[in-house]
Protein backbone atom coordinates (compact mmCIF):
# COMPACT_ATOMS: atom_id res chain seq x y z
CA UNK A 1 0.00 0.00 0.00
CA UNK A 2 1.27 3.45 -0.76
CA UNK A 3 1.30 6.19 1.76
CA UNK A 4 -1.66 7.78 0.02
CA UNK A 5 -3.71 4.61 0.15
CA UNK A 6 -2.93 4.17 3.81
CA UNK A 7 -4.11 7.62 4.53
CA UNK A 8 -7.20 6.89 2.51
CA UNK A 9 -7.97 3.87 4.64
CA UNK A 10 -7.43 5.84 7.81
CA UNK A 11 -9.68 8.67 6.72
CA UNK A 12 -12.25 6.19 5.49
CA UNK A 13 -12.39 4.45 8.85
CA UNK A 14 -12.60 7.76 10.70
CA UNK A 15 -15.47 8.94 8.54
CA UNK A 16 -17.27 5.64 8.91
CA UNK A 17 -17.01 5.72 12.71
CA UNK A 18 -18.03 9.35 12.86
CA UNK A 19 -20.93 8.71 10.52
CA UNK A 20 -22.19 5.87 12.64
CA UNK A 21 -21.73 7.98 15.78
CA UNK A 22 -23.64 10.93 14.35
CA UNK A 23 -26.40 8.58 13.26
CA UNK A 24 -26.60 7.04 16.71
CA UNK A 25 -26.63 10.42 18.43
CA UNK A 26 -29.38 11.82 16.23
CA UNK A 27 -31.46 8.69 16.53
CA UNK A 28 -31.05 8.57 20.29
CA UNK A 29 -31.79 12.26 20.74
CA UNK A 30 -34.93 11.83 18.70
CA UNK A 31 -36.05 8.84 20.74
CA UNK A 32 -35.01 9.32 24.26
CA UNK A 33 -35.31 12.94 25.27
CA UNK A 34 -38.06 13.68 27.71
CA UNK A 35 -39.76 17.05 27.96
CA UNK A 36 -40.60 18.71 31.21
CA UNK A 37 -44.03 20.21 31.72
CA UNK A 38 -45.87 21.83 34.57
CA UNK A 39 -49.59 21.12 35.06
CA UNK A 40 -50.42 24.40 33.29
CA UNK A 41 -48.25 23.42 30.34
CA UNK A 42 -50.09 20.12 30.08
CA UNK A 43 -53.41 21.90 29.85
CA UNK A 44 -52.09 24.55 27.52
CA UNK A 45 -50.26 22.30 25.10
CA UNK A 46 -53.04 19.70 25.17
CA UNK A 47 -50.70 16.80 25.64
CA UNK A 48 -52.51 13.60 24.85
CA UNK A 49 -52.34 10.28 26.64
CA UNK A 50 -49.45 7.98 25.84
CA UNK A 51 -46.74 10.60 25.41
CA UNK A 52 -43.93 10.24 27.88
CA UNK A 53 -42.91 13.36 29.75
CA UNK A 54 -41.85 14.72 33.11
CA UNK A 55 -44.44 16.42 35.21
CA UNK A 56 -43.22 18.65 37.98
CA UNK A 57 -44.69 20.90 40.64
CA UNK A 58 -45.62 20.92 44.30
CA UNK A 59 -47.34 17.99 45.96
CA UNK A 60 -50.71 19.48 46.78
CA UNK A 61 -51.53 19.63 50.48
CA UNK A 62 -53.95 16.99 51.64
CA UNK A 63 -53.96 14.95 48.47
CA UNK A 64 -51.54 12.15 49.35
CA UNK A 65 -53.52 8.93 49.69
CA UNK A 66 -51.88 5.58 50.20
CA UNK A 67 -53.51 2.56 48.69
CA UNK A 68 -52.91 -1.15 48.54
CA UNK A 69 -49.26 -2.00 49.17
CA UNK A 70 -46.98 0.72 47.93
CA UNK A 71 -49.59 2.29 45.68
CA UNK A 72 -49.90 6.01 46.26
CA UNK A 73 -52.04 8.72 44.76
CA UNK A 74 -51.42 12.45 44.96
CA UNK A 75 -51.90 15.65 43.02
CA UNK A 76 -49.20 17.82 41.57
CA UNK A 77 -49.95 21.49 41.30
CA UNK A 78 -48.28 24.63 40.09
CA UNK A 79 -50.97 26.52 42.03
CA UNK A 80 -52.82 27.36 38.82
CA UNK A 81 -53.67 23.86 37.63
CA UNK A 82 -53.34 20.49 39.26
CA UNK A 83 -53.08 16.95 37.95
CA UNK A 84 -53.69 13.67 39.76
CA UNK A 85 -50.79 11.25 39.77
CA UNK A 86 -50.65 7.58 40.64
CA UNK A 87 -47.45 5.75 41.46
CA UNK A 88 -46.50 2.35 42.75
CA UNK A 89 -43.18 2.13 44.50
CA UNK A 90 -40.97 3.66 47.13
CA UNK A 91 -41.22 7.40 47.47
CA UNK A 92 -38.01 9.40 47.92
CA UNK A 93 -36.99 10.48 51.41
CA UNK A 94 -37.91 14.08 50.82
CA UNK A 95 -41.36 13.41 49.42
CA UNK A 96 -43.81 15.46 51.46
CA UNK A 97 -46.89 17.52 50.91
CA UNK A 98 -45.92 20.95 49.76
CA UNK A 99 -42.56 19.73 48.52
CA UNK A 100 -41.40 20.17 44.93
CA UNK A 101 -41.13 16.92 42.99
CA UNK A 102 -40.65 15.67 39.47
CA UNK A 103 -42.47 12.62 38.23
CA UNK A 104 -41.90 10.80 34.99
CA UNK A 105 -44.51 8.80 33.13
CA UNK A 106 -47.52 9.08 30.84
CA UNK A 107 -51.01 10.48 30.99
CA UNK A 108 -53.72 7.85 31.11
CA UNK A 109 -56.89 8.21 29.05
CA UNK A 110 -58.75 9.37 32.16
CA UNK A 111 -56.42 12.33 32.58
CA UNK A 112 -54.54 10.76 35.51
CA UNK A 113 -50.78 10.80 35.20
CA UNK A 114 -49.31 7.35 35.72
CA UNK A 115 -45.78 7.84 37.03
CA UNK A 116 -43.08 5.22 37.04
CA UNK A 117 -40.49 7.41 38.68
CA UNK A 118 -40.69 10.09 41.37
CA UNK A 119 -37.73 12.34 42.10
CA UNK A 120 -37.24 14.71 44.98
CA UNK A 121 -33.65 15.68 45.27
CA UNK A 122 -31.59 15.33 48.40
CA UNK A 123 -31.20 18.84 49.58
CA UNK A 124 -33.16 20.71 52.17
CA UNK A 125 -33.25 23.87 50.11
CA UNK A 126 -33.27 22.14 46.82
CA UNK A 127 -36.13 22.71 44.52
CA UNK A 128 -35.78 20.75 41.31
CA UNK A 129 -34.75 23.54 38.94
CA UNK A 130 -37.51 22.95 36.44
CA UNK A 131 -40.08 23.08 39.21
CA UNK A 132 -38.63 26.27 40.63
CA UNK A 133 -38.77 27.82 37.20
CA UNK A 134 -42.38 26.97 36.53
CA UNK A 135 -43.43 28.02 40.02
CA UNK A 136 -41.65 31.31 39.58
CA UNK A 137 -43.77 31.82 36.51
CA UNK A 138 -46.82 31.40 38.72
CA UNK A 139 -45.31 33.83 41.20
CA UNK A 140 -45.37 31.33 44.04
CA UNK A 141 -41.80 30.56 44.79
CA UNK A 142 -39.45 33.09 46.28
CA UNK A 143 -36.68 30.75 46.94
CA UNK A 144 -33.14 30.74 48.01
CA UNK A 145 -31.54 32.75 45.25
CA UNK A 146 -28.87 33.49 47.76
CA UNK A 147 -25.88 31.79 46.21
Amino acid sequence: MTRKQRRGVLIGVCLAVLGVAVGLVLLALDDSIVFFYSPSDVAEKQIGPGQRFRLGGLVEEGTVKRGQGTFVEFAITDTAKSISVTYTGLLPDLFREGQGVITEGKLGSNGVFVADNVLAKHDENYMPPEVAESLKKQGVWRGNDKK
Binding site: A28, L29, D31, S32, I33, V34, F35, F36, R54, E130, E133
Partner: peptide, 8 residues
Protein backbone atom coordinates in the same frame (compact mmCIF):
# COMPACT_ATOMS: atom_id res chain seq x y z
CA UNK B 1 -36.72 22.00 29.20
CA UNK B 2 -35.77 18.46 28.38
CA UNK B 3 -33.82 15.76 30.06
CA UNK B 4 -31.48 13.43 28.26
CA UNK B 5 -31.48 10.31 30.32
CA UNK B 6 -29.85 6.90 30.35
CA UNK B 7 -31.68 5.70 27.20
CA UNK B 8 -29.74 8.21 25.12
Amino acid sequence: KISVGPPY
